[in-house]
């Protein structure tokens, strides 16, 4: 199993039956493939739909009026519904979305998140991310633990401009699951064959190591 599959598989296990879940673009989208058989979640897309499903299959009709958050045609499950962007962000900001799953440039031990701009680089805008991380009940960050140079993306304090302050609830990487608590970052689970020492050495943030640590799988 590769790193991204492990992250997606573990993330999918957070959801409970009936949860409304918003998945970001990229790695978070892969979470859709690993929802447990006995759990039925409703996918929210911020352009105004709950109950959005994957793209139409071969031979299925394509409706350009029904698109996902990337603008590609999707399908609607039975019971799904569409509404305005205004209603959509009311759902999001009002705490009616149980989980939002996003990637990050940096996360820190205070639950701060930076994932929308790097000073000096072209910025595409925050889209709906700031509202999602402010309003969703749980904010799950899925990402590879370190950047390409091997630096920890889990900081004591974010250095990049924030998307949200104190908003992250869990961080899921290919090494571990961390929970953001008022006391700090708690190491909840380890990936198979990964040690506490390895996680500590690859994490800039201070970690709280409890006596009992679970396994990601």
């Amino acid at each position: 199993m590769n790193a991204k599959e492990l992250i997606a598989r573990r993330t999918a296990k957070f959801f409970k039956d009936g949860d409304v879940v918003n998945l970001g673009i990229g790695l978070p989208t892969q979470v859709m493939n690993y929802i447990p058989e006995d759990v039925d979640v409703w996918f929210d897309s911020e352009n105004g739909v709950v109950g959005l499903m994957s793209a139409p299959g071969e031979g299925q009709p394509v409706d350009f009026n029904l698109v996902d958050a990337s603008g590609f045609p999707g399908t609607l499950r039975v019971g799904g519904c569409c509404f305005s962007s205004f209603d959509s962000f009311g759902l999001i900001r009002g705490g009616h979305v149980a989980y939002t799953v996003l990637g990050a440039y940096e996360v820190d031990q205070h639950g701060n998140l930076a994932n929308w701009m790097v000073p000096g680089k072209t910025c595409a805008g925050m889209g709906g991310a700031m509202d999602l991380v402010t309003g969703a009940k749980n904010v799950l960050i899925t990402m590879i633990h370190c950047d390409r140079e091997g630096n920890s993306k889990i900081k004591k304090q974010c250095t990049l401009p924030l998307t949200g302050a104190g908003v992250v609830t869990h961080i899921i990487t290919e090494l571990c699951v961390l929970e953001v608590t008022p006391e700090g970052l708690v190491l909840r689970e380890l990936a198979p064959d990964v040690t506490v020492e390895e996680v500590v050495s690859k994490t800039e943030a201070d970690l709280i190591i409890p006596e009992k640590i679970g396994c990601m799988l």
Binding site: E46, S85, F86, S88, F89, I92, R93, M126, G127, G128, A129, M130, D131, T134, G135, A165
Partner: peptide, 25 residues
Amino acid sequence: PQGTLCERMRAGGAGIGGVLTPTGL
């Protein structure tokens, strides 16, 4: 932010002088 954009337009259309949002704090 996208949700703020919606609320600002709603305020503009509904005779409201502004909106209070936690988004962007």
